[in-house]
Every structure is written in C-alpha cells, then in structure tokens.
Amino acid sequence: MIQSVLSRLTGRPSSARVEREDALRHLQLMLAGGHDPTVQSVAGALGVAPDRAAAVLADLERRECVVFQAGRVTLTPTGQAYATHIIRAHRLWEQHLAQSSGVPPEQWHAHADRAEHRLSPDDVAALTERLGNPTHDPHGDPIPPPHGAVVPHHGMPLDELPVDQTARVTHVEDEPAMVFAELVMLGLYPGAIVRVVERGPHALGLWVDGEHVTLTPLMVHNVSVAPLAAPPAPAPVRLSALPIGRSATVAGLSPACRGTERRRLLDLGFVPGTVITAEMVSPSGDPTAYAVRGALIALRRTQARHVLIQPAPPEAEATS
C-alpha cells in the first residue's frame, strides 16, 4: 500500500484538498505500519517538491489535523478520523468496483484514487450498507471501521512459504497494475488456496484452486499468504467444468466471488452439500442452466467458475 501511495497521483488535476487528503492518507498508513513519516516521504507520496510538501503539512497543522512533536509528525484525533475516512472510502470503493461494477481489476486502484476525494461520509455509510459491510478490500487490506484504527494486513510473503505447504492467500498488492493484472488472471486473489509445487531460481510452480500456474519472482513478491494447518480434502473443481447431464455436489463458493454476487448465489441454493446438475447450454453458447434444489438456474460461465464442486459418483444423478 505504501508503495502504491508513492506512485499514485500521476496525471491527476492537483488541488489543495486532494493534496491534503493524500498527505493525511500517507501519514496514517506510515504511522500504522510503524514508520516515521517525513517531509521527504510526503513529497514522494504526493509527487511534489519538498517545499510544497512542507507547505501542505503546515496547512494541515493550521487545520489541526497534524502536530509536530520533537521533529516528528503525528496526527491529531481529527486528522486521524479524516485520514481513516479517506482510506475507508478508497478501500470500500475498490470493494464496490470488485463487487458490482465490472471495471477490470487493474483499474480499481486508479478509480478509487479519484473516488476517495469525492465521497462524503454519508456516501461511505450508504456504500458500506449496500456492500454488506465488507471487512476487507479486494486486495486483502482490512477496511477500517468508521471510528476504528487502520491496521496493516498480516500474512507472510509467498517467497517464504515452504514447498508443499498449503496456504491461503491473504493479500495481493495492486501496484504495479500490470503485475496485479497478471496475478488476477492466474486466479490469485485473497482467499485462494495455494500450494508451492517447486521453487526455481526464476519461477515458482504453484497450485491455485486446482490449477497449476507459474509465477515470476516479481509476481511472487507481491503476494502474501497464511499457512494452513491441514490442506482441505480433495481439491474442488470449478462448476464451469461440469459436462452437461452430469451432477456434482457443491463444495463452496470461491472467495473471489464477493458481495451481492455471492449472496445471490447462496440465495439461489448454491450452498455446500447441494447436488446440482448441468442441464443445458444456451444456443448462443454461454449461459448454462443448472438444476438446483428443484429449480432451473442459468449462470454465465464467469459465475459458474466461482462455484466449486466435488464431482459426484454417478449414482448421485437424481437431481430434485
């Protein structure tokens, strides 16, 4: 996140308020991470000269958002609340984009960088409610509660995960956008279950949700994981792979499927243990209709990929 703060703000109209808010955000994230922010670090985060950064900090002090104590910059309670609002707006907006907009993942961050300055506290409250009160943004960063503290995500770097150890992805860094886009394409998102297969000098072989992928060191560097005590029982497969006429038992929903979409699938009966049958494909190729608990539900392939199944033995063919 820190790194992302540094490289943001290119090509955006600069206004005093945007600068102030970006500076507050930077200060809050640095302090939360246990670092000491400086005029230089603020200048880097804002992409401006140190003089300008110092002016912004002076402005913030005048507004009683920051105080200088013994050469160190700290946030006042007002400044903290303000910064928390900005971070909250940013992460919620990313979550909103991930859940319901269809904006491609590598653009989430840039969109949220603009939205965070636009959303009022009322907007943020309404957004939280609409999103079903998420706890994390789509990269795995915790969304701070309105009056709570900003805490960094936890997890160990994927670099350090031993071979054959199963782990859950906790965080996928969203900067640089190119690397992030590749990680998304390979199916790496917070919550994905991974296992290191082999570790070479220039590549890492990895199982991700039942698929084998290869990561470059740069990509590995941007992923954090939490080791799992016991690997989950037989690796689930995606529903999109179920041939027409066959049945299977739902194992769960992929963590990549969030918010409204997830709830809708649960509402429709895609809960663990349900037996479903692939019934027919649309003549235009995409949605496939599945028999679920006595009803016929059509899902697009992108959604069927989010339902994980255990292939059922043939005698479980009875559907309704």
Partner: peptide, 8 residues
C-alpha cells in the same frame, strides 16, 4: 425476494 439477508 429469495432472502431478507442480502442487500438489494
């Protein structure tokens, strides 16, 4: 509605 939990 399918449920009263979701947020539509």
């Amino acid at each position: 509605t399918y449920s009263l939990l979701a947020t539509s």
